[in-house]
Simulated assay, not measured.
Amino acid sequence: MSDDFAKLWLQGNLNQVAITRAQQAIKSLGRALPCRVTNVIGKLVTVEFQMDTSPWTLPPVTIPKAESPWLTEPTQIGDTGITEPADAYLGGISGQGGGTADFRQRGNLTALVFKPVGNKSFSPIDPNAAQLQGPNGTILRTTTGTTSSVVTNSSGTTITFGTTTLVVNASGITLTVGGQTFTWGGSTAVSTLPIQAPEVILPNGPVNTHYHYVPAAPGNSNVMTG
């Protein structure tokens, strides 16, 4: 009986050692925790963890946002989300620290990225439509080929393709094309449209061969004027 007891005692201790080692390994993994943005530095954000961690105090951490160069978000101080852990060092791809990742174990609050989380207070204009918005509006633009962009902000909407620009705002519409500017609207309610013949074609033919019928005064013949 004493031999069996000694064996069972050893087995119990080995089990506890294995459990402790497993718990330590789990604790060393990255943590997906709720957080709030306290500072924005380009594509990096500093976040504070929004949870009761007593008796420990988790320090704020500066981590990259989970986004690409093709689609960026105007993250603001006060935005909330979660930290998403990676299994390896991220400084080499985020530019935060440089170097190359390897399989060495990192601290559980280091290899993290910030991801926003939706809130029931977010009210979309149309629940069935994609929505882009930001404090300064939105910008859509190309990165290759002919330079083009659509910029919407407090000044209006500007559509640009090469040297051609269309501006729509509260003052009216302004079109710049081929070095000429056409405007409609404005505070004076006067529209100007420069016309150069024979490039402009009207319903009755080119502008340089277009005529208007002008009734003559009594006793005179009717005339046509260009």
Rank of each mutant, 00 (worst) to 15 (best):
I77S: 00
G134R: 04
K120F: 06
T110E: 15
W70E: 11
A101L: 08
P127C: 00
D79A: 09
A130H: 10
I125T: 13
L132H: 12
T110H: 04
L90C: 02
D79M: 07
A86Q: 11
N108G: 01
A129M: 12
G78M: 05
N136W: 03
W70T: 14
G81N: 02
P69T: 05
A111S: 15
Y89G: 01
L132G: 04
T110R: 03
S94P: 02
T138H: 03
L90E: 03
L90A: 02
S68T: 15
G91E: 00
I63K: 00
T80Y: 07
W70M: 11
K115R: 15
A66M: 15
L109M: 14
A86N: 12
E84K: 11
G98L: 08
P59I: 01
A88Q: 13
P74L: 10
T80A: 13
S68M: 12
G99C: 08
F114H: 07
F103V: 09
L112A: 06
T110S: 12
P85Y: 02
P127R: 07
P60F: 08
D126N: 15
S121I: 07
Y89L: 02
D126R: 10
Q105D: 06
T80E: 15
A86D: 07
I125Y: 05
N128E: 12
T72D: 05
A111K: 01
R104V: 01
I93T: 12
